[in-house]
């Protein structure tokens, strides 16, 4: 058995005998995956904080409150089924949004401006 310390609690087997690929039967049993977005305080955007499984939208938003805010009041939560999200790069492994340095003119630091220009 090949053992490596990985993950939080130390050594676990890491050899080829540990299966990783999912079997579809179990996936069908699972509740759908939801993505959770939380507005931490007024004035801020909702930010993606993680995901959870829930049978439906109503249960999802309440579970999100329990899990991701541990019931701190004053926040706003959005949940959306992961399957309903349209992403910019639908084809996985597509380097569409690979970092590229060829459009530097989009960035404010591209423009050299003397430091004594007010309010820039």
């Amino acid at each position: 058995m090949s053992l490596t310390s990985e993950g939080g609690h130390g050594a676990v087997p890491t050899g080829a005998e540990i299966p990783v690929e999912p079997r579809p039967a179990a996936s069908r049993r699972d509740w759908p995956l939801y993505e959770v977005f939380v507005r931490g305080k007024r004035g801020l955007n909702h930010v993606h904080v993680g995901s959870l499984h829930a049978p439906d939208d109503e249960m999802a938003v309440h579970a999100a409150r329990d899990v991701y805010t541990r019931r701190n009041e004053g926040v706003s939560i959005w949940v959306v089924k992961a399957a309903d999200i349209t992403a910019s790069s639908p084809d996985e492994k597509d380097p569409l949004f690979a970092p590229s340095g060829d459009k530097v003119y989009r960035h404010p630091t591209f423009y050299e401006i003397p430091e004594d220009v007010p309010h820039m």
């Binding site: 130390g10 087997p13 999912p22 179990a26 996936s27 993680g50």
Partner: peptide
């Protein structure tokens, strides 16, 4: 959830734990 972003599935991972195919810290 992090594992699920890699194409894994929680119910399936739970099954693998219960079937002792995947392990946990001793």
């Amino acid at each position: 959830s992090a594992a699920e972003t890699l194409g894994a599935d929680r119910a399936d991972l739970t099954d693998k734990l219960i079937e002792r195919k995947q392990k946990y810290s001793s």
